[in-house]
Amino acid sequence: MEHQPTSFSPSVPLSSSSPKPGQSNFRRISRTEDSSPFPIPGLAADILHMRVKEGSKIRNLLRFATARMQGEGRDSKGASLRQVVFSGSGRGVTKTITCVEILKRKMGGLHQVSKLYYKTVNEVWESPQQGAPGITMERTVPAICILLSKDPLDPQEPGYQPPQTLSPSAEDTERRRGLLRTAQSPSSQQTAKRLCLDDYSVCPP
């Protein structure tokens, strides 16, 4: 109970007269995050690591990650990646999970391990008064780290999730949608083509 969700533990002693940091007259100079190692054991150092921030666009993250996972850059590296790590903290946690969920649905057959941890962020605040000491403080924010892998992972690891098998209802709707599309598209394409041809036959002369 001693530390609250975002605990403020100033490492520089505060004089009693100075206002509390976080007020508007204090300015944040720098914000550094600790580069903690992956909380998931046994990961390669050169693994693809997607750092999801609050303002990251999901489509950008996923475009990059799926391209690497599906091996579109085959000529440079030789093979597509087998594993990817997504991590995010604070308000980026929800986005991280959403990214992972979408990627799992898109690719299928991915094993997952999720880990929760506190991330410490060091902030340096500057006081507006000249001569007054600045403040460095350590904040802890909740964070999540998710490993997705095409290869099987240890099922005994806490936070492991096996690949999701498509539920029959979802599969059915997908198939029905596919059928509908295949049933509709040829005719529409043909009409489109015919229209084009007609246009061409009319226009050139």
């Binding site: 946690v93 992972v100 999720s114 880990k115 929760l116 999540i144 806490p158 936070g159």
Partner: peptide, 21 residues
């Protein structure tokens, strides 16, 4: 997540977490 981590911290490492999404 915050609640789970707080529980773990106040148990002095006795509790474990397993998260699923």
């Amino acid at each position: 997540i915050n609640i789970a981590l707080q529980l773990q911290a106040s148990s002095q490492g006795a509790l474990q977490l397993a998260a699923n999404t």
